[in-house]
Write a protein that binds this DNA or RNA. Sequence first.
DNA 1: TAGATTGTTAATCGATTAACAATC
DNA 2: TAGATTGTTAATCGATTAACAATC
Lengths: 217, 217
Amino acid sequence: MKRGNVSNNVIRRLPRYLRKLDDLASKGEERISSDKLGRQMGLTPSQIRQDFSCFGEFGQQGYGYNVDFLRQEIGQILGTYRGYSAILVGAGNLGTALIQNFDFIIEGYSFLGAFDVDPAVIGTDVDGFPIYDVKDLDAFVREKKVDIAILTVPRGVAQELTDALVEAGVRAIWNFTNTELEVPEGGPLVESIHFSDSLLVLTYHLAQADDEKKDES
Amino acid sequence: MKRGNVSNNVIRRLPRYLRKLDDLASKGEERISSDKLGRQMGLTPSQIRQDFSCFGEFGQQGYGYNVDFLRQEIGQILGTYRGYSAILVGAGNLGTALIQNFDFIIEGYSFLGAFDVDPAVIGTDVDGFPIYDVKDLDAFVREKKVDIAILTVPRGVAQELTDALVEAGVRAIWNFTNTELEVPEGGPLVESIHFSDSLLVLTYHLAQADDEKKDES
DNA sequence: TAGATTGTTAATCGATTAACAATC
DNA sequence: TAGATTGTTAATCGATTAACAATC
């Protein structure tokens, strides 16, 4: 697969394409042109063709793109179905919600279990996945060569747990702690979901709308 | 406050600035230059000064920026402390986790309660916030003029509830359903948190690293 | 075949970076 | 005052859009 140095903007659009294609497939659509896809997604046909061309040639002149084929290709690019292994660190409300909402098996990941400090939950399970003692985290990550750690601990201990995960050699951290984690050069990849950032962007637009209205009057 | 047409990129950086400034303030830092701030955040000093200059003049030559002042200004811009009202629709695991993790009062929002269909939870409360019957959603939103609806329902009913919220006149939807919601022209603002998009970006980078390693051998 | 639509090259637009006069 | 650092204008860089030959 071609994969020249692709810009971040392109990478962040790929999952959207995948979701849209899933949607089209579920509606029984067989083919789609960049023009139609663009109109449905609010992108220009040019941009769509440029984006895809970073990775190969998936279409056919005069026809467009085969939905199923394109879907598989983008799935490939994004690395779904590679069976990356994941654990969850911090089995609180949010962690539990994530386990229950994500069907990690269907999504093509191999979910190995959760870790926590609370003796009350250690030894129990969530949706059939075991909750281990965080004391065993280091040994577990090393032994199983865990790819992804989902970090859902309180902010106060986020960096501490990050350091432990770095030390144990995890490859990626999916960060829900609403803090900026520090990892050393060459350390794991970090992808963060900052809930509050998202809410503030929303509020920004509300505030702007209110200010504009006020200016008029 | 100046607020010329500001690019999306700038808007999405504002919450990061706010978080960083909170951090600096909590460490007792009094002043910061665009140069230092840039090094700490991985941005160029130029970009930082350009970003701020979209909204006004917050610094002082030869000194830099006063941390507390800048923090307040950016908070203003983002509309914190305007007391926007919010409700939660779908009091399942994720919804409950959000209520418990976000301190909506401290964050400057006025959180009014949650709505659900499940008779087992209707009438109970989460962290002291009431859970109402979703049947009363429309009347409640109209009467209280709710600003923000946090949507944490299963995907299957996401659009249906969105339609109801649009009808009731909500101003913004904070969408956790992992689907693309359709709202009419002039309808509410939608800001989505797509968990799976974020995870796929992570996986993309893992897959790329693996492919590169394979190419070498 | 004729029409549709791709992949790609060139043109445009916007965002980031650099430079510098103003000034604290 | 001299040094530091801003806010802003100009230059550069990259991303998006337009155009079009290739071809299914």
